[in-house]
Every structure is written in C-alpha cells, then in structure tokens.
Amino acid sequence: MVNGLLDLIIIGAGPAGITAAVYAARKGLSFLVLTGDVGGQAAWSSDIENYTGYQFVSGAELTLKFEEHMRKYNIDIRENELVNQIERKNGVILVKTAKDEYSANSVVIASGKQSRELGVPGEEEFKNRGLTYCATCDGPLFAGKVVAVIGGGNSALDAALQLIKIASQIFIINISPELGGDAVMRDKVIKSDKVTVMNNSQVTKVLGDKFVSGIVLKSGTGETEIPVEGIFVEIGLIPNSDFATDIEKNKQGEIKVNCRNETNVPGIFAAGDVTDVPEKQIIIAAGEGAKSVLTASRYLAGQE
C-alpha cells in the first residue's frame, strides 16, 4: 500500500540525514526519515577533534547530541527500515522498503557508506565471533588478546591506536609496501612495542572453530598462518547506493551531485558520504545535508 504523498523523504540518519531532517522540520515540510540506524559512521568514530564547537568529542557523544537536536522536533523516523528501491513515476518519487511503500515529491538520499568486506573464506562465518568492523564498539572484548588489524590507512591506524590500550599484541596486515594515513598517527602506532607491521601481505582466509583462531596471509615469500583471536577489518568503505538504480554514479558507486546536491533525476537530491562530494568529513556531511534540503524546498516551491 502506498502511504499519503509527502513533500520529502530522507533516506539515512547519519550527520547528513539528521541535519537534513532538522532543516526540513524548520521549513515545515511534511516528511519522514527511513534508515537502518541512527548515527551512521559518526557513531563509530572514536575521538573527533574537528567538529566546530567541540574541541574534543567522541562519536557516540556527538551522535547523541545530533539525536537530541532532532528529537526537539516531532520527526517521524523509521529505524530498521532500509530502502530497497527508489523510482520516479509521473513526477512522484516512490520509495520501497521491506516493510512498506512511500511516495513523495522529493527525496534526499543520505544513506552514507559501510565497511568494505575482505571477501575471503571464513569472513561471513566469524562475523561477531572475533571478526569485527568496529574497533570502537567491540575493542574492549579483546582485552589481553592477540589481534590483527587489516588495512593500512587512517581507519586501520585509528583501530590500532585504540587496541594498543586493550590488546596484548597487534599485527597490522597491510597489502601495500608501506603504511599510509597521517604521519602523526603512523608514528604513534609504530612506536608501540605491541605492534608488528606486516607490509605486502594479504589475508586469504579466516581460521577458527567456534571463534576466530587465526588468519592465513599471502606475501612474496608464500603463505603464513598467524594465530589471532581478534580481527579488525579496516580496508575502506563502500557507498550504500545499490538501491539507487536509475541515478547516475561514479566508478566507486558514489551518487553524482552538483554543487546544489541535485542528481540527474529531478526531485531526487543526495548528500554526504554516499555522494561524490570531495572530502568525507562529519562537518561536510552535515553541511551537505542542510544544503540538500534547502535545494529541495526550493524545488518543491517551484512545483506548486
């Protein structure tokens, strides 16, 4: 059943979606928010030191502040409701989820990104059984244990820095010849005597019985097995844009937008990390969320 026609549907509730919702509420639009969860990647961040007004804040705290702000308005937010399909028909945009079907004159896609998976045998089986994509959330469960961080960029370094305080030993498994990321973080990580960096190494298999017991690595010298009890996968992100089949994307799957957050489909706008906007930052995503609703409301006014 298609529900009543709305002014706007916002897809996602990370920094971009939440900011979009606040702006939409203040514009007096009829709208709802469809999302898997509230907070998005920001909720997973450990320490945030570059969101203006906060010299230091954790991802969880900042997300609570975002939510509090959103709760000030009577916003209809449907959690646990991921969008499967979006389609423009006769000037109206139809949005389908597993639970229901909605229609609106405009849509803001702010569905963000999710962790890229390794795609090796054992990964699926051992998710949450020693293998995780969130050091901030699950790190404390690995107190005194030997763990591996997979990846060589900033998110891998961030995970390693958190784990230095918790785990007994940390292997960093990096596919490239050298670690990337910011020099400040890299130096801190390398300095720790708990850390062993393994460059030019690729994970080919996750081992275990009920829980993770090790990983198999491929490097120039052949295959090696390392016993670990925890695996933290930090090999980048992929945009949550699969449902947007009619919308133009770049090679990475990011939705293409212009400086007014317009996509190639009239009435469909996009904001934040799911788009090809240069630089993925919380403050940028929030700003883009605001901008997208201002454009959408101008579009809606032009339709009347």
Binding site: G39, G59, A60, T63, C134, T136, C137, G139, P140
Partner: peptide
C-alpha cells in the same frame, strides 16, 4: 561497553 553507540541507544 561504554564506547559503543548502540549500547547507549
């Protein structure tokens, strides 16, 4: 855990 956002929620 104290750092997990979904726990807080």
């Amino acid at each position: 855990t104290s750092t997990c956002h979904f726990c807080i929620r």
